[in-house]
């Protein structure tokens, strides 16, 4: 199974986004939050990201979905050394749900990334 990590500036937002995605999509694939700094402030922690990736990594690759600012930059820095971890350019919540649904079917890494990114093109009012 492809693993998913949700990286947010906010620890609470990352945790709740995981809970929301699991509530909608189930937990067939592993998903973990990496939000806030080591001290729990707004920001991003490379240590938390590394731990979350290690927890969801089953050998089939990991998708990272970020919200903004330092979350994006920290994720980009992290994947420099990891070919099996890929960034999805996707809306945080909708991308997470799409990715989790797709990963839960046993889809491959590129399919999970594509599903997450597809969430960008789906309108809410049309």
């Amino acid at each position: 199974m492809v693993g998913i990590v949700l990286i947010s500036h906010s620890a609470a937002l990352a945790e709740e986004a995981v809970a929301l995605a699991v509530g909608i999509a189930g937990e067939d694939a592993p998903i973990r939050p990496a939000g806030g700094t080591d001290d729990g402030d707004l920001g991003t922690s490379l240590t938390k990201l590394e731990e979350a990736v290690a927890e969801v990594d089953q050998g089939d690759g990991v998708v990272l979905i970020m919200d903004l600012g330092s979350a994006v930059l920290t994720a980009r820095t992290f994947v420099e050394d990891r070919a099996d971890v890929v960034l999805a350019d996707a809306p945080f919540v909708e991308g997470a749900v799409n990715a989790l649904v797709t990963a839960g079917t046993g889809a491959a890494l590129d399919e999970v990334v594509a599903a997450a990114e597809e969430a960008r093109t789906i309108g809410k009012l049309c």
Binding site: D38, T47, S70, L73, T74
Partner: peptide, 12 residues
């Protein structure tokens, strides 16, 4: 710096 700054300036 990447590990300890916490904000966007850390990775940069």
């Amino acid at each position: 710096l990447i590990r300890k700054v916490g904000g966007a300036s850390g990775p940069l």
